[in-house]
Amino acid sequence: MTLKTRIAAGLAFLLLPLLAQAGDWPVTVKDLDNRTVTIEHKPQRIILQDGRDIFALALLARDNPFANVVAWNNLPKKQDSETWNVLKRKWPDAEKILDMKFSDQGNVDLETVISRQPDLMIAQLRAKPSLVQTGVLAKLEALHIPVVFVDYELHPVENTLPSIALLGKVMGETDRAQAYIDFYQQRLDMIHQRLANLSKKPLVFIEPIAGVGGLDNGCCFTHARNGWGGLVEAAGGINIGSQLLPGATGTVSVEKIISMNPDYYLMTGSKRPGKGTAVIPFGYNVDPKEVQMAFNALLSRQGVSSIPAVVKGHTGAVYHHFYNNPYNIIAIEILSKTFYPEQFADVDPLADFHALIKQFTRIPDDTIILSVSSR
Rank of each mutant, 00 (worst) to 15 (best):
T2K: 08
A8F: 08
A9Q: 13
G10E: 13
L14E: 03
L15V: 12
L15I: 09
Q21R: 15
G23Q: 08
W25N: 05
V29K: 02
K30D: 01
H41A: 14
Q44K: 15
Q44F: 04
R45W: 01
L60E: 03
L60K: 07
A67V: 07
A67K: 14
V69N: 05
V70C: 13
N73R: 11
P76E: 03
S81M: 06
E82Q: 14
T83R: 08
T83P: 00
T83N: 09
V86S: 01
F102D: 12
D104K: 14
G106A: 10
E111S: 11
R116H: 14
L120T: 05
R126K: 11
V132Y: 01
T134H: 03
G135Q: 08
G135T: 10
V136K: 00
A142K: 14
V147W: 03
V150F: 01
Y152L: 03
V157Y: 07
N159E: 10
P162S: 05
L166I: 06
L166V: 04
V170W: 02
V170Y: 04
M171W: 10
G172A: 11
Q178K: 15
D182H: 13
D182Y: 04
F183N: 14
F183V: 14
Y184T: 05
Q185K: 14
Q186T: 15
Q186H: 15
L188G: 03
L188Y: 15
M190L: 15
I191N: 02
I191M: 13
I191P: 01
Q193P: 00
R194M: 11
L198D: 00
L198Q: 06
L198I: 15
S199C: 01
S199M: 05
K200M: 07
L203R: 10
V204C: 08
V204N: 04
E207R: 01
I209Y: 06
I209E: 03
N217S: 15
C220G: 04
F221R: 12
F221W: 13
H223N: 15
N226Y: 03
V232Y: 03
A235M: 12
G236A: 07
I238A: 06
I240M: 08
G241T: 09
Q243K: 07
A248D: 11
A248R: 09
T249M: 12
T251E: 14
V252N: 02
V254D: 00
K256M: 12
I258G: 02
S259V: 05
S259Y: 02
N261V: 11
Y265R: 04
G269W: 07
S270P: 02
S270W: 03
R272N: 00
P273Q: 11
G276L: 03
I280A: 02
F282E: 06
G283N: 06
G283I: 06
G283A: 10
Y284V: 15
V286D: 00
K289L: 13
A294D: 02
L298T: 02
L299P: 00
S300T: 01
S300P: 00
S300R: 05
V304F: 01
S306K: 08
S306G: 00
S306M: 08
S306E: 10
P308V: 12
A309D: 04
A309F: 05
V318D: 01
Y319H: 13
Y319P: 02
H320T: 09
F322G: 05
P326A: 09
P326W: 01
Y327N: 09
A331S: 15
I332K: 08
S336M: 11
Y340E: 07
A345P: 00
D348S: 13
A355G: 05
Q359D: 09
Q359V: 06
Q359N: 12
T361G: 04
I363N: 07
P364Q: 10
D365G: 07
I368W: 02
